[in-house]
């Protein structure tokens, strides 16, 4: 009896902490608008914990929804997750099938009544080279996209199956197709035709499992000046809302003080410790500013 009572109590306390944290972060007004995730490490997690690969991927999905909830709650409007790379088709047929099935299930689940899409008013988009997908998966994707089309408070881009180079290539081709005169092709035109074209610029990229590569994810967007790249050593299913809150806090802190840098010096004398800190921050940003 005690045990069963305790469990929901615990989870609701952590839920409460999560909500308070995200609202606190929201009032900072320095939250990234667009966050990208490379969700790496599901299979390694499964191996580490002696689970089946399927369970690893499921744990990864759980982790994703928890992290995204915190993001949307704290004011992030757009999130892009790397779910499946075009290169992943090279995996064993069994695993590809499994991933397709799982994706179909989960994409549907997100849009279900009372789930994330509805709760946060999020539009679900599936981006990438959709022509590579099997028919039945494509059908559920279309249904979900249609169902959440009208939601306007936020966007979730699921990259499935996607590579950054394919995205650039796709945009190049589209631009050539549309342009009447080659001189009308500009950088912004190519940017517009990327899958993330009309969405806010990427501000923060998060990658897990300690790999320091982009692995063909949002190449065009990440190479932009000023995008913050955060790498975590933990595997994706271990990456929780707390890690996310941490990186959002880090982002907000940096942004807040780097904006202040450009203002008058008088703004600094608020609190002693804060001042001490902003000195160190000023140092960190002087390089950036003086570029």
């Amino acid at each position: 009896m005690d045990g069963t009572n305790k469990m929901p109590r615990c989870s609701s306390i952590s839920e409460w902490i999560k909500n308070t944290l995200s609202r606190t972060l929201k009032v900072s007004n320095c939250i990234p608008k667009h966050v990208g995730f490379v969700m790496d490490g599901n299979r390694r997690y499964a191996r580490k914990n002696e689970m089946e690969i399927k369970e690893g991927h499921e744990a990864g999905f759980e982790s994703m929804s928890r992290v995204l909830e915190l993001c949307y709650e704290s004011g992030v409007t757009t999130a892009t997750v790397f779910a499946f790379s075009i290169e992943n088709f090279n995996r064993s047929a069994r695993e590809v099938d499994l991933l397709m099935k799982l994706a179909r299930e989960k994409i549907r689940q997100i849009a279900e009544h009372g789930e994330m899409a509805q709760r946060y008013g999020i539009r679900i988009r599936v981006i990438g080279d959709l022509s590579l997908l099997p028919k039945n998966v494509l059908k559920s994707i279309e249904e979900t996209t249609e169902l959440t089309k009208a939601n306007s408070r936020g966007t979730l881009n699921i990259c499935f199956p996607y590579t950054g180079r394919e995205e650039i290539f796709h945009s190049i081709k589209k631009s050539i197709e549309i342009a009447t005169d080659s001189q009308t092709i500009t950088e912004s035109m190519i940017e517009q035709h990327l899958y993330t074209g009309e969405l806010p610029q990427l501000d923060l990229l998060i990658r897990t499992s300690g790999v320091t590569r982009l692995s063909d994810f949002m190449l065009w967007q990440v190479s932009n000046k000023g995008v913050v790249i955060e790498l975590f050593d933990c595997l994706w299913p271990e990456f929780g809302p707390m890690n996310m809150a941490w990186s959002l806090l880090k982002f907000a802190f940096r942004k807040y003080f780097s904006v202040k840098d450009n203002k008058l010096e008088e703004d600094y004398d608020e609190e002693d410790e804060e001042q001490e800190d902003s000195v160190d921050n000023r140092e960190a940003y002087s390089v950036k500013k003086n570029m």
Binding site: D216, V222, N224
Partner: peptide, 27 residues
């Protein structure tokens, strides 16, 4: 060679599988 990774418009096509390295807080 900066404090935290900023690719600053490095050719996007050319960083597909490139290993990235930097030391935090190094200038």
């Amino acid at each position: 060679f900066g404090p935290c990774l900023d690719l600053q418009g490095f050719p996007p096509w050319h960083i597909r599988l490139t290993e990235l390295h930097w030391e935090e807080d190094n200038h």
